[in-house]
Structure formats: C-alpha cells, structure tokens
Design a protein around this nucleic acid. Structure first.
Lengths: 292, 292
DNA sequence: AGCCATATCGTTCAAATCGTTCATTTTTAG
DNA sequence: CTAAAAATGAACGATTTGAACGATATGGCT
C-alpha cells in the first residue's frame, strides 16, 4: 500500500545509517515530504526510484513492505532467464519475484525485462509445453505469477505527470493474452507516457468508443491470437479509421501478426517487441518537443 | 456544502495518527472548529489547504469525504460500494485502491470485500452495461483495475505457514473471468489455507494432472461462463472422479451454475459466495484439528 | 426523555526523529 | 604517495510522534 515510510525504516531497509539518509533527503537525492512537526516521510516508490538510480540493493526489503529479497550477486541476463523459467515452471512465486525485482533495481529497462527475460522465459515454457515437458496448468500458472509480479512492479513505478501524453490499448475479442498488453503498459509508463491497458478480449466497437471518449495520442493493439483472420481484419479496419479520424497514432504488435496479415493492415508502427515500440514513441515525444 | 470531517476521518485520509492531527489543530496548523461539547470538526477545504501548504500528496477532494472505518454498518458499506462503482467506471484506480484498502485496514474480511463490495460493484456495472449506460471497455477496465488492486492486497497478506493445507483451483476452458477465482484464492488465504489459483481457461485434463501432482486437500472450480453445457459436464465429471480418487474435496461456485446444471453434478460443496466457501472449509479445518 | 454503542476528549509516556557536532573512513586531486 | 575534500556513522539534548488510558460527547434508537 502507498503508506509513507520513516527514515529509520528506510535506513535499515537499504543498510545505511540514518544520518546519511537524512543528508540525502536534504540534498534532494531522495524525495521526502515533511510532517507538520518537521519529521521526514518517504514514499515507497521514491525509495525504489532512488535505489534504482544509484544502483543500490535493499538489504532488508521486508521493512519496505516490498517483495524484494536480498540478492548478493548480480546475475547475468542468462542466469536470470534460467532461474525465472525454472521458478515459473515450479510455481515458485518467491523466486520469480526476486529475479524480476532484482533486475528492475539493477536498472534493467522494463523493455528488456519484458522482451528478453519474461518473453524469453515464457517462450521456453511454451516450447517445453509443446514437447509435453510441462503441463498446460504450469504454463497458465506461470502467466498468473508474472501477472501478479507485474502488478506489483506497476504499483511502485514512479508516477507520470498528468501532462504526459495518454496511450491506451489492449487486445481484441478472442485474444486472452494478458501479459503482452500489460508489459506494453509498463514499458510505456517507464518511457513517460500515461499508459492504460483496457484489458483483453475487447470488441472493436468499444475500443473505438474508448478512443473517442479518452482521446489518447497513441493506441496499441496486442495481437497474440487470431480466431478468424477476415473478422480480425474487419475489426481492425474499423479501429484504424477511427484512429485516423481523431488523429491517434496506432501501433500494433504480437506473434499472431505474420507478414501476410500485416500486408492487409495499415498502421503507424509495427513492433516486434517492446523495444521497437518504445523507440517509436520516443521519436514521437522528441518530435513533439521540437514542435513546441 | 462544507462537509465537516472528524479527526479520525482526516487522520486516516492523510495517513497520520489521530493524536498528531489533534496537536496540529491545537497549534493552529490546521483550521478546526469545535462542537458544543468540545469535539473538533474540520472542513474539507481547510484540510486540502493544509495538505497543499505542507507539500503532502494532494488527495482527491472526494477522497476526504470517504467515510472511513466505522465498523460494518450498512451505511458505510453502501458508501464504499458507491464510491468504488463510480471510481471503477471512471477508471480512477487511485480511488478504488483507497476504498478497498480502507476496508481491508478496517478489518473487513476478504469475504465481505469480495462478496458485498467488489461483487456488488461489478454487478452494478454489469447492469449499467446491459442498459448501455457504460461501455464494454469500462467494464473490462474495471476488471483490470480490480485485478491489480487484488494483486497488491495479495502481496501484503500475511503468509500462511507451509504446514497449512493446500487448495488449488481455477476456471475451465471457455471461462475467462479472473476476478472470482482470484477472490477465492485471497479468501482462502485469509482463512489460513495455502491457496493457489492456477488461472483461467484451463483444460480439464491439465486440472486433473495438477490434482495428481500437487495433491491438494481442496479443489475449487469457479464457473462464470459455460459455452457448452454437455462439454462442461463431461469435463467436470472427469475432474470429480479424479478428485475422488485422490481424496480431494471439491467445491464449485459461480453465476453460471444454475440449479438445472447443478442437479447433474456431484461435489462436496456448492457456494453461492465466498462466505459460503470459507464457512465450508472452516468446518473442514476444525474437523481436522479435532482429529489430530 | 433516556439508553446505548461508539467516537472523541485531554492527558501521559515510551519511542522515534529532529538538527547539530565530531571523529572516522573513503574519495579526489596534485 | 600524500594531503585536501567529501562522505559516513555515532552521539547529543530538544522536539515530535503514536499509542494508551479513563472520562465525556455524539448520534441513533425506543
């Protein structure tokens, strides 16, 4: 929950003296507010942001009410993937949590966490699945675990200002894959956008209505499963037209979008991964800055 | 209408102890008037002004008018539902989070939070949806928001001991409703079980495999949507037999299970809501205690 | 009006935090 | 390598905070 922490809690959590923490607050290295009586109070997300920026690791993370556990060594990306994959298959949420939060604190971008770690782990699990090495329930449980972890990561992400451009997105009817669109939301938030995933399995009509009501600058569509290609293309056409009408950028991505289907679609960007998407929107933000 | 707030409400809203708030009032840091009997009353605008002056997080004005704590009176539960419903429809995650965490901190059981607050709010939203008062994307977004909040709640729930009995469950293929099975998991954890939701849309065969591998004491099946009744019954029969084989209790529930379908099923418990389920498993735990 | 459950009152007290100073350790620069 | 500069951790009295207590006020009810 979003309650404020006392300097003592934070100092013990990150393994530093109270005096130093106070100095850091006073120098603006960590954001802190004051009580009416002058005592400092720190928000969890600000502490995490500081840890991430300075490359520190929490010693005693339970004090932060965070799911982070101390990790002595910096794991390589390959090790992280291996541990994560094993943990997810075994249903070891604790382990998965530790791996992902450690990566986050080690300044790994959410793009890479999504593309190269979670995406790769889920790909390996899917592969084992088709080899009958893991049961479907293990794959689904892995998705559930990742979803919970991403929700927690999402809760401690620095809040983006109200003035940031809005991005919305989701998946269409017949596509129940939550993780990709959730990762898009997180990656866009890290890139400074006010991103909101509307969820999965949405009819095209209501996505059009959402564009009309919310008037985002960007709309993303994650496509991991297509039940009927003609129906999908028709739904997509509807949405593309509406996006054009309201001057909304439209970005698409997902494993189900093969070249043949893409040829019959129009969009501002097709993204193979989160990195592509973030690069695309970064360009847009820069252009906007130049214009102003 | 200048609503007057009690010190307790304000203290909870801004996350400070009641004693400190009283001192601040007495030192003139927050404007407050007195009732004839000497009790302090604070105006919303004065509290907001104080928050702005002390650099604390600016809170939504509507947030401060939230009635907090008052244990389990119908009125406040009604208010919680009203605020939650409005927040979910508007996509105001902050408000929804506040409402649900306040309820949790006020010691409202997760059963009641699920049954009487979230369940009721989602029912109202569904009703408005069929009246075309809210868009489908608003309903889906509400589910997403609730899911994120429940993930966070789940993370701060006390951990159950390893010795606690294991319960697993989920939804069958064709049923993508996450919230019910997620709420079951949380309610069972609160009741002292080691509960793990395996997710949604699972084939019956892999649920059988999960029972065989994990050997839980309890299996729950949440049924919010049935695509084909005969196929569902066949899948269910498979699972029931497997549960019998391994001596696993099986509890079912969900809006899609009408009397006609129930007549063709066998189970240890049918639960209309979370309260029923928790009462059922509490009986089991007590019996086990007696046995030991 | 009187009753009752609950909230708030004022007060006290232990624990935490404040700002500050100072000795020690670590980093930087010549 | 050495000396200056900077950061750290510990200590100090003064102040603030949060939790407790019995007594009183509030608001709903009959």
């Amino acid at each position: 929950m979003d309650q404020s922490l006392t300097p003592k809690q934070v100092a013990q959590a990150i393994g530093v003296s109270e005096a130093s923490l106070k100095r850091w607050c006073d120098r603006g290295l960590v954001r802190a507010v004051r009580t009416a009586g002058g005592h400092r109070r720190l928000a969890v997300e600000d502490v995490l942001e500081f840890l991430r920026r300075t490359g520190r690791r929490p010693l005693n993370a339970e004090l932060l009410q965070l799911p982070v556990v101390r990790s002595a060594t910096n794991l390589t990306l390959e090790d992280s993937i291996r541990h994560l994959t094993a943990g997810l298959i075994a249903g070891d949420e604790e382990l998965a949590l530790r791996v992902l939060f450690d990566l986050y604190l080690a300044k790994t971008s959410l793009c890479d966490i999504g593309d190269r770690v979670i995406g790769e782990a889920m790909r390996q699990i899917g592969e084992k699945w088709s080899n009958h090495d893991v049961e479907p329930y293990q794959e689904r449980r892995a998705c559930e675990i990742c979803g919970h972890i991403l929700s927690q990561l999402r809760a401690v992400l620095p809040t983006v200002p109200e003035s940031a451009p809005l991005a919305i997105g989701g998946t269409l009817w017949g596509d129940a894959y939550r993780l990709p669109t959730l990762l898009v939301e997180l990656a866009l938030r890290e890139a400074g956008w006010r991103a909101e995933s509307l969820g999965t399995g949405l009819p095209a009509e209501t996505l059009c209505a959402a564009m009309e009501t919310l008037r985002p600058k960007l709309f993303w569509l994650s496509v991991s499963n297509i039940e009927s290609v003609p129906a999908f293309l028709e739904s997509y056409k509807l949405m593309y037209e509406r996006a054009q009408q309201f001057n909304i950028l439209i970005a698409v991505g997902g494993h189900a979008l093969n070249a043949e289907i893409r040829c019959q679609m129009q969009y501002n960007a097709f993204c193979d991964n989160l990195r592509h998407l973030v690069n695309f929107v970064a360009g847009f933000l820069a252009a906007k800055h130049l214009a102003v």
